[in-house]
Amino acid sequence: MGKITKIGWVTAIGMVALAVLPPFFLMTGQAFYLDLATRLVILAIAAVSLNLILGFGGMVSFGHAAFIGLGAYAVGIPAHHATWGGFDLIASYNGLLHLALAIGISALFALITGAISLRTKGVYFIMITMAFGQMAFFLFQSLDVYNGDDGLTIDVRSELPWINLDEPLQLYGLAYVSLVVAMLLTRMIVNSRFGMVLQGAKGNDERMVTLGFNTYFYRLTAYVISGAMCGYSGFLLGNFTTFISPDMMHWTRSGELMFMVILGGASTMFGPVLGSSVFILVEELFSHFTVFWHLPFGLMLIGVVLFIRGGLMGLFKGKRG
């Protein structure tokens, strides 16, 4: 106790860097890098949310991008109606309404799809979550009112008290604080009595059932929390890109999220953040040279999975464990 582990150091340095560097970029006139960092931090929140169920609950969800999309459309659709009329019930630029919709609808979607998906295990779970994700994708693709495939442009960002999301630095600040909160929340849940049951069910479901735990119910609860958190990241992403389309929900996006979590190190606090950082930076770097950047990426993941136990964070593990 008291002594800070290597993982602790990496986490601290990483989080400080994310707090300090982006404002620095802006001040030195490199606004592009602030944009990059904003996208990175928002996707990191999504990855942290996925890690709650994947890393700590053993639920390999291949449809998590659907929640990002739902959160983003929870901004886009009310804003669209506020601009163009119709659907008076929700037509609004009010950010708190958008937030409530993003979290509420994501949680509901998680509850319904989770209740069904969690009846299955292993590969079937992966496939059924992917199928639900694609269902959301095709649903929004077919909604002509919201331009289907072509997507929606958000003309006015969510209006929030105190914060002006049109200000890139304020948007970044909100995203960064949200990431910290998401990480602390995840840590709190994971270490709680609920979290112990969740991790126990990941390690040995049979034993947990024998002890009297309805593991299905615990998993479902975690799935809903994760979905809601991921929907929140969609709320931020919609406000950041101001353009949303069904493509955000495509299964390849879900795959990227999984990639980030596994690359960085599932079931660690900072792993998903490290994973999304590496992902965004490598994507940025390679896409300058070649459109075939997915290949080196895939090879990298295979390398990490094969040679480093516990992802990149595994490199910083001490002798213990």
């Binding site: 709190m188 849940i189 709680s192 009595r193 112990m196 002890l211 009297g212 615990y218 609860t221």
Partner: peptide
């Protein structure tokens, strides 16, 4: 932790999210 989970099941307080399990 294994045994604590069995005790926790009897305690009936597993649906708690805030306090760390190690501190109970």
């Amino acid at each position: 932790d294994n045994i604590a989970l069995a005790v926790q099941a009897q305690d009936g307080t597993s649906f708690r999210f805030v306090k760390p399990a190690h501190k109970i």
